[in-house]
């Protein structure tokens, strides 16, 4: 039994590509402890997002294990995995990916509703979070009416609504301008710190990466810790 919150142990990921196989990750070991922040950097195409998806149980490794609180994720069935993602992981994607047919506060509510929370309860929590990120006056607007920065703030609130153990952010500022990027970065770290969440961040922005406690470089299919 370990104290690690999330552990990737000898994880390998191979994609079938036409006649040949493409090995993206090989024997990766990674641990996340409660309350820590980890950044993974690397060049485009190095497999950072793949690593993130394995950590967030969006994909399964070809070899190796992914353990959350000592439970092996590969042994879980679809229902258990879905529940795990809903309750323990909060995703922030590069392109926010909000649902166009819902308003900002409804988008934030969705994970809570999936969990089974009552509508009123979910709504209240959603509005609190949006208020915290300064979007209380925009909460009834649909994503089409929000700017890029505002949408990403909504995405961050959505990631936090179920109070997950781990926030997984995949290039959260990748599609924003410099000023918006800085605001989102600050907001992300503030929220994670306030709520004592663990952060796993993928970015090719070294300065953003350095804000985390530990920084890894993903290169040649393996992870190296950067000092």
């Amino acid at each position: 039994m370990t104290d690690h919150l999330l552990e990737l142990s000898s994880v390998t990921k191979i994609f079938a590509s036409g006649d040949s196989d493409l090995c993206v990750l090989q024997d990766i070991d990674l641990v996340l402890d409660q309350g820590s922040s980890v950044a993974i950097t690397g060049k485009s195409g190095s497999g950072k997002s793949t690593l993130l998806h394995l950590a967030g149980a969006l994909d399964r490794p070809s070899r190796g294990k992914v353990l959350f609180a000592d439970k092996e994720l590969q042994r879980m069935n679809d229902r258990q995995i879905s529940e795990f993602r809903n309750r323990h992981i909060g995703f922030v994607f590069q392109a926010h990916v909000l649902l166009d047919d819902f308003s900002a506060w409804e988008n934030v509510c969705i994970p809570a509703l999936i969990r089974g929370d009552r509508y009123a309860q979910a709504m209240q929590r959603s509005k609190q979070l949006l208020d915290r990120v300064g979007l209380s006056e925009r909460m009834n607007h649909r994503p089409q009416k929000l700017s890029g920065g505002e949408r990403q703030r909504v995405a961050i609130c959505r990631a936090l609504v179920n109070e997950p153990d781990i926030i997984i952010a995949d290039e959260p500022t990748g599609s924003l301008d410099e000023q918006s990027s800085a605001e989102i970065e600050q907001l992300l770290f503030d929220m994670v710190t306030e709520q004592h969440r663990t952060l796993l961040l993928v970015t090719h922005d070294i300065q953003l990466a350095r804000r985390c406690e530990t920084v890894y470089l993903l290169q040649n299919r393996s992870l190296q810790e950067l000092s």
């Binding site: 969006l58 795990f84 309750r87 990916v97």
Partner: peptide, 14 residues
């Protein structure tokens, strides 16, 4: 499709 992917990532079942 993309929205459905997000829903899956938020914990919705298959």
């Amino acid at each position: 499709q993309r929205e459905l992917a997000v829903l899956r990532s938020l914990g919705a079942g298959k």
